[in-house]
Design a protein around this nucleic acid. Structure first.
Lengths: 198, 198, 198, 198
DNA sequence: CATGAATGAGTTTTCATTCAT
DNA sequence: GATGAATGAAAACTCATTCAT
């Protein structure tokens, strides 16, 4: 018995192919045949494994959300042990997020695309919302270890996420060296840390 | 001779119609006929005034950018006179932006759509970039009146824009009362002001 | 101003083309492009004038039912004046129906096709039912002029229609000279007339 | 060795499944997978037992014709012994046919479907023709025992079949209580019997 | 200028059929 | 024999664009 069935493998192969496509083309302009070509499978296969193009999208979003939440969760878990000091842990975590998510061009692109789709698609919006809730909750929980005021912890967490998303966005539009994103993020992070450990 | 020719009027009518369409439908799913219907004109007309659907988009982006830069510019000009204190001026300006832009659902939607299009369309990206440059420069200039360090002024301006964009984004996804966006924005603004006028 | 608008003309042209197609191919095997080719128009036109293939079908059924009800109605109206004797009128009318409908291979084919479609399509069934109701009512009314018993008149009318439909059907399957359909019909008609005018 | 081989059993299972399908869906809209699902077998199997979808159809038609000819033949054979009086025998036989065939909704549906297919498929038409020939011959033979005139016997037999088919058809379209089909059939049968035994 | 009919390339989707395991 | 993954031809339908009137 295989760990991952052929079915599951093919599905992942297709979702991975869509991911590739989205780096150069919007979802609505990506055709079923484009995805099939990237996945090196016959286009009929896509309808064998998925009900429709929309179904591929929905599965893709679950897939991509899961991937990045997992990346984040794993880091938090590993870093929690590695860095006993909460201050250092938070510092390192913010650095990790900035490097691996906020300033990762591919991820940023993908998520802008998903945001846009979510504007007109309720189901996608629901999934996106859920992701941000988890992400926000996790951050809030960490912050709450340092800040007593629960509400403040939550606000700070939302603010931080908003800021990172904003930077992610701008760094895509300003796709050049014009801005020093790392500096900006570092300053912001310092400011946040100061709030905690004054 | 009219200030705005009939031709110009018709064009604006069409761009306004596209704006309406984008509130409920993505650009790629909006058809030429949808726009024509909203504009109360025959769909053939759209190709008389514009070369193509893409051409409408490009003109629309100029139109919408111009509209909001104008709104902002006018405010700055008027508020500059109204509020002699630079501190009050900045305070009021931030409030204005938050209310009229950051938390305006329609504008937020439109700009998420434009961001997404810009991912895959160089010309749109160029226009968007230019808008952010102007917006950033204007803010930087104002901040520079208070902060000596030019680089710091610029960083603060970029940070603020990023933060506002991030909040704009999240407030669309969390389309409920769950988050108290105004509070979050006010706290952020206070923090910024403190940086200036310590 | 034209009597029949271009729109109406094109629609009829398309419905006529479908009629042609149905003489050699079932509706489900007839493609939009087949119809377009027969109508000498671009296939896109079919979707310009009709919402869908099903919409063409529904319009076609109205069209074909109307055509044959009109043929029948006109005959009845004209023959009523031409043949003052009710006996002769009925005799002649039955002959007319047999020749122009029952034994017309094309009409028979078309209606077998419509019957079949009606098995699985409620709307088509509704239309077909309505046609038979009118047809039955018209015949019943004529018979009622001769027979006092209203119920008997109705039963006779239904029986006659059933018989004609049955012959129509068999004459298609036995597409050869093997059976002398005219004789069979004439004998049936004589029997019916005897019932009236004994 | 079994009377019916496994292979034959499987084939019948599949044909029976098609029969089920045709009660709700036309043949052209019935997919190979639909049939397979109804038959509780893998869809690949259908191509092992039959050359193609068309081959299934052809076998199905043989199967269904054989089934109903057998039902009829058995009845005739049994009733011939049970009812020594030819009059009673014919009376009872007509009643049997009306109840078990003419007014059986499922059979009627199936045969309308087959008629339609026969319009565009020569082989199906050949099979259907052959069935009607046998059916007609059997009836003619019985009638010939009473009527001397061979030609009249044949005409009467064809007429009767046509009438029954017509009623079968109308009773499907008028799928309600509006018409009293049994009365109509009984009256027709009485009339026929009167012709014989005046 | 305005209209709306016409075009046709391109899209998603279906499904009979094949075939390796 | 049985399975279900894979193929690819063909279908309905969409829509930006053109153009005669």
């Amino acid at each position: 018995m295989p760990r991952i069935s052929v079915k599951e493998k093919r599905k992942l192969q297709i979702l991975e192919a869509l991911n590739d496509c989205l780096l150069t083309t919007s979802f609505s302009e990506t055709t079923i045949k484009d995805i099939a070509k990237k996945a090196n499978v016959n286009h009929g296969v896509l309808h064998y494994y998925f009900k429709s193009k929309e179904d591929i999208l929905l599965n893709y979003i679950d897939f991509i959300i899961d991937r990045y939440l997992t990346v984040f969760t794993k880091w938090v878990s590993a870093a929690g042990k590695k860095y006993p000091s909460q201050r250092v842990f938070i510092e390192e975590t913010l650095l990790f997020i900035n490097k691996r998510v906020t300033l990762d061009r591919n991820i940023s692109k993908i998520f802008i695309e998903i945001w846009e789709i979510s504007l007109y698609n309720k189901e996608v919006r629901r999934k996106l919302k859920q992701m941000y809730r988890i992400w926000e909750q996790t951050v809030t929980d960490e912050f709450a270890k340092v800040i007593k005021d629960k509400k403040a912890a939550k606000q700070l967490s939302v603010s931080m996420i908003a800021f990172f998303e904003g930077i992610s966005l701008l760094s895509i539009v300003f796709d050049d060296k014009e801005h020093e994103w790392k500096d900006i993020l570092n300053n912001f992070n310092k400011q946040v840390l100061k709030t905690f450990f004054k």
